[in-house]
């Protein structure tokens, strides 16, 4: 057996385990399959129990839905604003915590990760109240700020993980050879962080677009794609919502497959190097 991390186990427990896995994945996927199926049903409320025949018409209904399109545009506006805020803040936070030798380090770190442990609605509410004091009412701006307050924590953790593996002597060598701080930063630190900047941007984008709980409390009268989906689920339910579900499922499966293949390849490469 080439893989050393695998534990051997008996036949009886293997059967029990397989049954457990089967139930688990049925539980996970059956609802999604039903949701996808209802998107192809001619019947005009989302249903699989009343089947009126196969149709693709809900795709065109969705394509003509202007509020969904404007919501999508708003989602991207907020997402790019969040990336622009969360990357510098997360990076600054990571530098601060990993390079500052102070007894307040743990406290600062704790405050910076606290938004991840705070319910999203409270981040939304507090941002809304805070900016109302400054005369700014709820809208795309407050939604972006509220989202960035916790997405910055994610980017900070990602940058910290990367900085932990950094060889500081490289920076010191450059300084000894006469490079100034800015040159060291741009030529050595930033290139080292580049892969993380990319992945952190992707994570920030996905987190922002997916977010509902924080956004709904901070966005005021505006809407994003996800808040609009939420509104449709309560009022005017139509299989067009299922079509959005289908699109999400397809995008997710493609992205997840790419991610897993990529990760396994990395693992195999790391294993080959270790040998």
């Amino acid at each position: 057996m080439s893989n050393v991390s695998q534990v051997a186990f008996g036949r009886g427990s293997r059967i029990v385990l397989n049954i457990y896995m089967l139930i688990f994945f049925t539980y996970m996927f059956l609802p999604l399959i039903l949701m996808v199926a209802a998107g192809f049903n001619e019947f005009d409320t989302p249903s699989v129990t009343v089947w009126r025949g196969f149709t693709l018409k809900w795709f065109s209904v969705l394509a003509e839905d202007s509020r969904m399109w404007s919501g999508l545009i708003n989602s991207f506006i907020i997402a790019f604003a969040v990336i622009a805020i969360a990357l510098p803040l997360g990076l600054a936070g990571a530098f601060l915590v990993s390079r500052l030798d102070s007894r307040y380090n743990t406290l600062i770190y704790g405050i910076m990760v606290s938004p991840l442990l705070t319910p999203g609605i409270i981040l939304g509410i507090s941002t809304l109240i805070f900016w109302r004091e400054a005369g700014v009412s709820g809208g795309l701006f407050t939604a972006a700020i509220a989202q960035a307050s916790y997405i910055s924590s994610y980017t900070m953790l990602m940058f910290m993980a990367r900085l932990e593996r950094q060889d500081i002597s490289l920076e010191e060598a450059a300084q000894d050879l006469g490079a100034n701080h800015l040159q060291v930063f741009w030529r050595i630190t930033m290139p080292f962080l580049k892969p993380t900047i990319l992945t952190a941007s992707v994570i920030a984008l996905l987190q922002s677009i997916e977010n509902y709980n924080t956004t709904i409390f901070s966005i005021g009268g505006e809407h994003t794609l996800v808040t609009e989906i939420g509104a449709r689920m309560r009022f005017g339910l139509s299989p067009a919502v299922n079509v959005i579900g289908i699109i999400f499922v397809v995008i997710t499966i493609v992205c997840a497959a790419i991610y897993v293949i990529f990760r396994e390849r990395e693992k195999a490469r790391a294993a080959a190097m270790a040998r």
Partner: peptide
């Protein structure tokens, strides 16, 4: 990952 990454609202909608 697939059910985890699909939007919360859609998971609930199912």
């Amino acid at each position: 990952i697939v059910p985890y990454a699909i939007n919360e609202l859609l998971r609930v909608f199912a």
